[in-house]
Design a protein around this nucleic acid. Structure first.
Length: 294
DNA sequence: AACTGTCTCAACCGCGTAGAT
DNA sequence: CATCTACGCGGTTGAGACAGT
């Protein structure tokens, strides 16, 4: 059966827009708006175009105050930071950059920024491993996880996987810390493909982003560890069933659990403020994860 | 000059979802 | 509640531009 087409493809023009078509569409929308019906709009103004195509042309090209190309360093940083935190949610990323469209950002990321970043990562990794090697040779060096995973806003130093595994979450240590009305924050970054995902938990996402703007991360309570171990520790400690969910895209970040007390975990926050990477960094991808209450 | 490979980005495709009926 | 319709989104495609040989 398949999905019904949104328009009669045989009678619809495709491909690049002509200046005349642009002018027709722009002048109509300038005067009347879209009238809330993109499908009917092309017939109304005599364009042999699909409504979806009109919408896309307007949003990505004809709309006022659209900026094309010439991304600034600051915009690069914002895109990188958000991508690492929330993945390829281009419309959300675009909403943070006035004048930019999701399509533009997506193209920019896929064609340039990703490569630029990968180059930077490799450079930093090389520098880091040389530094690491030199230090090891001069003294039998033990890696400090807080140094290895130093969280900076846009582009953190890459941790080594073996370092990461040396410092699992230890709930018995964390237990002694006062946690009333505080935020327990932990790094999460590993492949979550084998972990069950739940669409119902995804619906909680808006609430989970409440930490986005107020940066409510208590860095003093960061616990680095394997997410599964963190989860297991929190479950056994709180007595609450938790579920680990794959964000299904690339990116990574710090997750935090808000708690009134250890036995009463009542909300979860995913914060994009402190990106974090899986140590192996195969290719350019790293999985993002967060934790949801069942 | 001709060919080939790579890059860029506008446009398309199809899926998920919200709202209307 | 089920079905339909349109919208919005992210992934993908392909034509044209450009660079390298």
């Amino acid at each position: 059966m398949g999905r019904a087409p949104c328009c009669d493809k045989a009678n619809v023009k495709r491909g690049p827009w002509s200046p005349d078509e642009d002018a027709t569409l722009k002048s109509y929308i300038d005067q009347h708006g879209t009238c809330g019906n993109w499908i009917a709009l092309p017939q109304k103004i005599g364009l042999k175009r699909c409504g979806k195509s009109c919408r896309l042309r307007w949003l990505n090209y004809l709309r006022p105050n659209i900026k094309h190309g010439g991304f600034s360093e600051e915009e690069d940083n914002i895109i990188c930071s958000l991508y690492l935190s929330i993945g390829s949610r281009w419309s959300i990323i675009a909403a943070q950059l006035p004048g930019r469209t999701d399509n533009d950002i997506k193209n920019y990321w896929n064609t340039r920024l990703k490569k630029k970043l990968m180059g930077k990562q490799r450079k930093e990794q090389r520098a880091s491993s040389i530094k690491h090697e030199m230090k090891r040779e001069s003294e039998s060096f033990v890696v400090n996880p807080h140094e290895a995973m130093n969280p900076i806003l846009y582009w953190p130093e890459l941790p080594l996987l073996d370092t990461y595994l040396q410092y699992p979450f230890d709930v018995s240590t964390a237990q002694d810390q006062p946690c009333d009305n505080s935020t327990i924050t932990f790094a999460s970054s590993t492949s979550m493909n084998s972990v069950k995902s739940s669409s119902s938990t995804f619906s909680q996402m808006p609430n989970m982003f409440q930490g986005f703007n107020n940066h409510q991360i208590d860095l003093g309570q960061i616990v680095y560890g394997n997410p599964q171990q963190v989860l297991d520790g929190l479950e056994s400690f709180s007595g609450v069933d938790l579920e680990m969910v794959n964000l299904s895209s690339t990116g990574s970040g710090i997750s935090s659990v808000e708690s009134n007390s250890w036995g009463d975990i009542n909300s979860l926050v995913y914060s994009p403020m402190v990106p974090h990477y899986e140590g192996t960094m195969q290719g350019s991808t790293c999985e993002a994860s967060y934790f949801g209450l069942q």
